[in-house]
């Protein structure tokens, strides 16, 4: 069954709900090594995205994702605005004019999102950022699909890899972003950006599971 705009809308709604539910946790993580606004910023950004969704409900997947990105850029005042904003815009560009997408397209979109985050933030794996959750997630997704698993199973593996990736940022020394100003003191804390990325992957997995149940 192909993925449609409706599924993308489900994903964005699930993402907004998860971010809202973990808002205080994300802000607390950011308070430890950043400027204590990650949860509040993302919650505001995704709430704005949800408010905008009805205006693009009849558009193609690329337009929905690009609109999501631009809304995040204009409503999130912290670093996550340009980073996630660019990620969604790039994913939207990869799926321009598409009304349906396959499992392979999901991989392509996530790779485009990763490229956008790397282009914007210049972070490499191991620097205690979103990249440390997204890279293992894409690897797990690709590997599971190559083994012939369903998109739902593969996305569950990706979400688990993202969560593990976020946890693996705890012993890392921050090399990018506000946390890098703390130097050695950034060690021992989980990166808020990697954590929110793991929640977005979880939202993708939840959307796939729900879609499978309904199919």
């Amino acid at each position: 069954m192909p993925i449609t705009v409706e599924h993308v809308t489900h994903f964005l709604t699930a993402a907004a709900e998860l971010i809202h539910a973990h808002r205080d946790e994300l802000t607390a993580l950011d308070a430890a090594i950043g400027d204590a606004d990650h949860g509040a910023n993302l919650d505001r950004g995704f709430a704005a995205v949800i408010a905008r969704l009805p205006t693009v409900a009849d558009k193609d997947i690329g337009t929905v994702l690009k609109t999501t990105g631009m809304t995040i850029v204009s409503t999130v005042g912290g670093a996550s605005g340009p980073l996630y904003g660019t990620a969604f815009v790039r994913a939207g560009m990869a799926l321009a004019d598409r009304h349906e997408m396959s499992a392979e397209d999901v991989v392509l979109a996530l790779e485009a999102a990763l490229d956008g985050i790397v282009a914007r933030g210049k972070a490499q794996p191991g620097e205690k950022t979103m990249v440390d959750a997204l890279v293992p997630a894409i690897e797990a997704l690709r590997a599971a699909l190559a083994e012939g698993r369903s998109l739902t199973r593969a996305m569950q593996a990706a979400a688990a890899a993202a969560a593990a990736g976020a946890q693996a940022t705890i012993p890392m020394l921050a090399m990018k972003g506000r946390a890098s100003y703390l130097g050695e003191r950034s060690i021992g804390h989980q990166d808020p950006g990697a954590t929110s990325t793991a929640y977005l992957l979880q939202a993708l997995a939840m959307t796939c599971s729900r879609n499978e149940e309904e199919a």
Partner: peptide, 10 residues
């Protein structure tokens, strides 16, 4: 610092 550079680039 921080997001300032990325916001300008965007």
């Amino acid at each position: 610092l921080g997001s300032a550079v990325m916001s300008v680039e965007t």
